[in-house]
Structures are given as structure tokens and as C-alpha cells.
């Protein structure tokens, strides 16, 4: 089933004194933590705590200060699954067109080459969306759309996979597919960074966890860091737990 041919480990990432202020609002304040190569690193924290802003800073989409260093080991492909995709649902864009955007250089409305089509079909198959490549993207259900977003992040093979609340809108089957895929990618050495809200899931799948609420509240191994008291403190009143 797998088409991932990852031979080199994913990158390690180092956040050093990263801050972000938009207008007069301080989003991130002096964050420092590391993500290890090939690790499945989870970011947790209350809503509005700056998790998505941190990911976007990592992607170079925010005017952050401080240093974000990525140590690549060969492949420099980043796969990104956004939290939501804002687009006009009436756009006549098929799933195949949408997938084409990530893997072909020519305009997406032109049919993909046989080679690209094969890759697209394989990626869709991995998220159990095979045979739906001709469907209009805007007409997919929320869960199906989320799966397609995941599939596009797999093209081309990523060394770093960034997922912003990937299980939001996914049903049980979709979540299972996602879980399987993450394990598969992790086994290939891909560094995975996930914003997650399901703390039980974080405990189960995560190698590392970092809790953010404008600053790093704690960072480390989920089984050690995610104590019941901390979880209660963070998510009941969003006050500092550290």
C-alpha cells in the first residue's frame, strides 16, 4: 500500500526565543523548545494560545522574531495540512485538479500526466479516497475534504509533515486511517508536528508534547508531562500550569 520511499530521516527543528506580535497583540512570547528528527511531536494548548501561529511561523508565513532552525537531512519537502481551507465551494475544481496543484508545475486545470495521475491515485488510495478523483472538491463532506488535504500533504513524499488539528471533522474511520498513516510515516523517519486536542491520543501516539499558551508551559514526554492536574489547569481556565 505504501508508496513512501523515505530513506533519510526527517529534519530536527529548534525554536529559540521565538516571539510574534501582530499589531499590539502578543501572540507568542519567547518560545524555546526542540523537535527531534523523526519524532511525532504534538503541540497542545488552549484555543487562542498561538499554536497555529507557531506552525505558520515555522512555515515562514508570520513576521516572527527569534530563530527557527531546521536541520535537514536531504529531502526538504514539507507537507502541510491546514486547520481549515477557506475557498469557494462552488469552484469547479475536482479532487484531481486540487491534488495536481501540489505535484505538477503546469496549470492545475490541465490534466495531470500519466505519472502524476498515478501518484495522485496512490495518495488518494492511502486516505481511502480512491475513485473519487473526479468529484468536485467543494461538494465533498468535511471529513472527505480533510482526507484529501491529508493526501495532498503526502505529495511529494514529505520529510516534515505539519498537521493543524487533523482529526477535526474526521469520523472514526477517517481518524483510524489518519492514525495508521502517521504511524507509517513515522516508521519511515518523517518528522511529524501535530496540533492536537485529544490528549489521550497525544499520550498514545506522541513522542513529545509541547504545551503552548503564548509561551511554552511545558515540553517533554507525554506520559510524564501530561498529568491530570496539568490538563485540568490548562483546559479548564487556560491559566498557566507550569
Amino acid at each position: 500500500m505504501s508508496t513512501v520511499a523515505q530513506t533519510k530521516p526527517g529534519p530536527s527543528i529548534s525554536f529559540e526565543n521565538v516571539s510574534l506580535t501582530l499589531g499590539n497583540t502578543e501572540i507568542l512570547n519567547n518560545l524555546s523548545f526542540d523537535i527531534y528528527s523523526g519524532a511525532l511531536h504534538c503541540i497542545i494548548g488552549p484555543n487562542g494560545g498561538g499554536k497555529t501561529s507557531l506552525l505558520r511561523s515555522l512555515l515562514g508565513q508570520m513576521p516572527h522574531s527569534g530563530n527557527i532552525k531546521i536541520d535537514w537531512h536531504g529531502n526538504r519537502t514539507i507537507g502541510y495540512v491546514p486547520q481549515t481551507l477557506n475557498f469557494d465551494t462552488t469552484l469547479p475544481v475536482t479532487v484531481e485538479n486540487f491534488m495536481s496543484m501540489t505535484c505538477q508545475t503546469r496549470p492545475a486545470f490541465l490534466s495531470p500526466s500519466a505519472k502524476d495521475r498515478k501518484l495522485i491515485e496512490a495518495a488518494l488510495e492511502r486516505v481511502n479516497m480512491a475513485g473519487k478523483s473526479k468529484r468536485i472538491f467543494g461538494q465533498l463532506s468535511g471529513g472527505e475534504r480533510q482526507r484529501v488535504l491529508l493526501a495532498q500533504a503526502l505529495l511529494p513524499d514529505p520529510a516534515l509533515l505539519i498537521l493543524d488539528e487533523p482529526t477535526t471533522g474526521l469520523d472514526k474511520a477517517g481518524a483510524a486511517i489518519m492514525g495508521g498513516l502517521l504511524q507509517e510515516l513515522k516508521a519511515k523517519g518523517v518528522t511529524i508536528l501535530i496540533i492536537h486536542h485529544d490528549l489521550m491520543e497525544v499520550k498514545k501516539i506522541g513522542d513529545c508534547v509541547t504545551c503552548i499558551n503564548r509561551k511554552v508551559l511545558f515540553s517533554g514526554c507525554p506520559t510524564e508531562e501530561l498529568t491530570a492536574e496539568r490538563i485540568l489547569n490548562i483546559f479548564s481556565s487556560a491559566r498557566e500550569a507550569a
Binding site: 533519510k8 511561523s57 515555522l58 515562514g60 513576521p63 532552525k69 531546521i70
Partner: peptide, 15 residues
């Protein structure tokens, strides 16, 4: 064999 290359993520805009 694995050559590590360090990338410093540039902030968007940066003025």
C-alpha cells in the same frame, strides 16, 4: 553520508 543542512526560517515580510 547524511549531509545536514541548516535552514534558518525567515520571518514573513521582515520589513
Amino acid at each position: 553520508m547524511n549531509k545536514t543542512s541548516r535552514q534558518l526560517v525567515s520571518p514573513s515580510g521582515k520589513g
